[in-house]
C-alpha cells in the first residue's frame, strides 16, 4: 500500500509551492498588473479642481434630499405606471419574438445561413446596453414610451433568445427523430418535439425578463424613452433632490418587490 519513498535524503525545509510555478510568468503577471494600473490611472483625465468641490456639493445634495418629498405623488405614480406598461408590453413582445430568433439561432435545427442571421441578431442586441439602444430609438421615433418598448423588446430578444437557443441545442434529440419518423413536417416537429421541451423554461424566463425589464425601464427614461427614469432625470436636472430621493426610494422598493415576486413564481413553476 505505502509506495517506496522516492526521496532517499529527507528534505528538512519546506516552502509553500507558489501559485504559478514558472517564476518568469509569476513576476511577469505582477509587473504587468502594476504597470497597467499606473498607466490606466495616470492616463485618465481627472479634473481634480472640480472633484475637490465634491464634498460640500455632496453635503448640499444630501441635505437637500432629506427628507425625501412625496408631495408630487401624482407625477411619481404616472411615471411608474408608464414604466410598468413599458415593461409588460416589451416583455410580451420580446418573449414572443425571442422564440423564432431562438429557433434560428439553434445550431441543431437551423440551417447554416439562418443560424448566422439568428446568432448575429442575438449577439448585436446583447452587445448594446439598453440605454444605448434607447437613445437610438429616441432619435428614430421620438421621445416617449414607444422608444422604451422597442428598446426593451430588443433587449429581451437578446437575453431570452440566447438562453432559449442554448436550451434548444440541448433538447433530447430522440423526440425529434421520433416525430420525423412519423413523417411530420418541419413545423409539426417544432411544435411537438421541440417546443414542449423548452416551454417550461420559457415561462420562467419570461418572469425573469419581466423583472429585469422593469429594472431597465427605470433607466431608459434617463435618455428620454419614457417611464420613471425621465421623471428622475428631470428632478435631478432641476436640483429637486428631495423629490429625486423619493423616486429613488420607490424604485428600490419596487425592484425588491418585483425581484421577490418573480423569484417566488419561478420557484413555483420549476
Amino acid at each position: 500500500m505505502t509506495p517506496p519513498d522516492p526521496q532517499p535524503s529527507v528534505p528538512r525545509t519546506w516552502k509553500k509551492p507558489p501559485f504559478i510555478a514558472n517564476p518568469l510568468v509569476r513576476y511577469g503577471i505582477i509587473i504587468v498588473a502594476v504597470v497597467y494600473l499606473v498607466w490606466a490611472f495616470g492616463s485618465l483625465p481627472f479634473n481634480w479642481a472640480r472633484i475637490s468641490e465634491g464634498i460640500p456639493r455632496a453635503a448640499r445634495i444630501f441635505s437637500g434630499g432629506f427628507p425625501p418629498s412625496f408631495e408630487r405623488f401624482g407625477l411619481l405614480l404616472t411615471g411608474f405606471k408608464e414604466s410598468f406598461q413599458i415593461a409588460i408590453l416589451a416583455t410580451l413582445l420580446g418573449v414572443l419574438l425571442s422564440i423564432p430568433f431562438a429557433v434560428m439561432a439553434a445550431r441543431n435545427i437551423a440551417p447554416m445561413p439562418i443560424y448566422l442571421i439568428g446568432r448575429s441578431v442575438i449577439i448585436i442586441s446583447r452587445s448594446f446596453h439598453p440605454v444605448i439602444v434607447a437613445i437610438l430609438f429616441v432619435a428614430a421615433v421620438g421621445f416617449g414610451p414607444l422608444a422604451g418598448i422597442l428598446t426593451l423588446t430588443l433587449y429581451s430578444i437578446g437575453f431570452v433568445g440566447k438562453l432559449l437557443a442554448e436550451e434548444i441545442e440541448e433538447i433530447d434529440w430522440g423526440q425529434v427523430e421520433a416525430m420525423r419518423a412519423t413523417g411530420a413536417g418541419y413545423l409539426a416537429t417544432l411544435f411537438y418535439a421541440v417546443f414542449p421541451q423548452i416551454l417550461p423554461r420559457q415561462v420562467g424566463l419570461s418572469m425573469y425578463q419581466l423583472d429585469s425589464n422593469l429594472r431597465a425601464s427605470a433607466v431608459v427614461g434617463i435618455v428620454g424613452a419614457g417611464g420613471i427614469g425621465g421623471t428622475l432625470m428631470n428632478a435631478f436636472g432641476r436640483y429637486d433632490y428631495d423629490f429625486a430621493f423619493a423616486i429613488l426610494l420607490i424604485i428600490i422598493a419596487v425592484i425588491l418587490l418585483s425581484e421577490g415576486i418573480s423569484g417566488w413564481v419561478r420557484k413555483k413553476i420549476w
Binding site: 505505502t2 509506495p3 519513498d5 526521496q7 529527507v10 528538512r12 525545509t13 519546506w14
Partner: peptide
C-alpha cells in the same frame, strides 16, 4: 514545526 511535520508524515508514510 517543519521537522516535526516531516517526521510524523514519514512515520505514517505520506511524506512524499
Amino acid at each position: 514545526d517543519i521537522e516535526r511535520a516531516f517526521s510524523l508524515m514519514e512515520r505514517v508514510g505520506i511524506a512524499h
